[in-house]
Design a protein around this nucleic acid. Structure first.
Lengths: 164, 164
DNA sequence: TTTACTGCAAAGGGTTTGCAACATG
DNA sequence: CATGTTGCAAACCCTTTGCAGTAAA
C-alpha cells in the first residue's frame, strides 16, 4: 500500500478540460464558480468540507457551491463522502483523477487521508465482493474501503468523544 | 463470500447479557427502553433507521432513542452507519454479535445488506491497510468495506437520483 | 431571448439538548 | 435521596430551495 500521487501533481488543465467536457455533455457550463470549486479540490489535500471550499475559493456563495457540487457530482466530476462528523466532504472522482484510492478516516477530527492498496489485494477484494453481490442479485457499482482510527495529530491528545 | 448468519438466529439472551455488562461497566443501566432498542436491532434484518426502531419498539420516544443509541454506541453495543441518504442507520457491533461483516448499500433506497468476505481476502486486506496506516502514523482501529450499487428491489425501476 | 447560473434569505429536516418529572439502586 | 433516565418541545446546524436578477449561448 502506497500513497497516491497528490492531486496537486495532477495536470490541472486535463482535469478542467475533462470537467468541461462532462458538463457540456448534458448542456451545462463550466462556469468560473465551478472551475473554482474544482481548482480548490485540486489544491486541498484530501477530501474537503464545504467550509474549506468556501475559504479556498474566493467569495463563493454557499448555496451556489452546494448546487454546483450537486451538478458536478451528477456528471461524475465530484464525489461526496459522508462520515459521521456532521459535514459532507468532497473529492474529485477517480474518473477525473484516474487514481483509485481509499481512505484513512480519523474518528476524532474527521480528517480523511487518501491511500491506495496494492493491486493484488484490490483484485481479490473485487472478486469477493462481486460474488457476494451476485448472491443477493445486487448490482454492485463501486466499492469503498475505509480504515477508521485516529490520525497522527489527534493521537495522544484527549479528543472529544466522536461517534462511529 | 457468504451471507452472515441472520442476527435473529443469535442467542438473544447472550446479547442482552453482554449489553447489560458493558453498560454496567460505566455505571449505566440496561433499562427497558435500551433493551427494546437492542431487541429491535436483533429482529430487524440489517442496519435500521431511527424510524424503523421507533416502529419496531413499542412507544419509544424519539429523543430517548437517540440518547440511548449514543450511550449504546459509547459502550460498544451499537454501531452507527452513515450513508448519504439523509438518515443514520444502526446495527449491533461485532463485539456483540461476533460476526465481522460488510455491507451492500443500495444507492437508490439506502437499504443495507450484510455480507461477509472470505477469510483470506480479509487477512490480505487487513495487512495492506495496516501498512498504509503505518505510513501515515495513523492508528487504525477497524476497517469498513462497502459495495455501493443497486439492490434487487430497485434495479430496473426508475429511482430518484440519489447522491453519492 | 431563451436557458443556465448566481446569491440572498428563508425553509427543511434529521439530530441534539433544556428541563422538569420519573425511576432505580 | 442521589443519580441515572425519560419525554416533550425547542433549538441546532448542515443542507436545500424560492425567487428575482445576471450572464452566457
Amino acid at each position: 500500500m502506497t500513497n497516491p500521487r497528490p492531486t496537486t501533481q495532477l495536470i490541472a488543465s486535463n482535469v478542467h478540460q475533462l470537467a468541461a467536457t462532462k458538463l457540456a455533455a448534458v448542456g451545462q457550463r463550466y462556469t468560473a464558480n465551478r472551475r473554482a470549486v474544482v481548482e480548490a479540490l485540486l489544491i486541498l489535500p484530501g477530501p474537503a468540507t464545504i467550509a474549506e471550499l468556501l475559504n479556498a475559493g474566493q467569495g463563493l456563495a454557499q448555496s451556489s457551491t452546494y448546487r454546483n457540487l450537486v451538478v458536478l457530482e451528477e456528471v461524475g466530476v465530484v464525489h461526496r463522502i459522508v462520515t459521521s462528523d456532521d459535514h459532507g466532504r468532497f473529492e474529485l472522482t477517480e474518473a477525473i483523477t484516474g487514481q483509485h484510492h481509499h481512505h484513512l478516516i480519523c474518528e476524532q477530527c474527521g480528517i480523511i487521508i487518501d491511500v491506495t492498496l496494492d493491486a493484488t489485494v484490490e483484485a481479490a477484494l473485487e472478486r469477493s465482493l462481486a460474488q457476494g453481490a451476485a448472491n443477493h442479485r445486487f448490482r454492485g457499482l463501486h466499492h469503498r474501503v475505509d480504515l477508521l482510527g485516529v490520525c497522527r495529530g489527534c493521537d495522544g491528545r484527549a479528543g472529544p468523544p466522536v461517534r462511529q
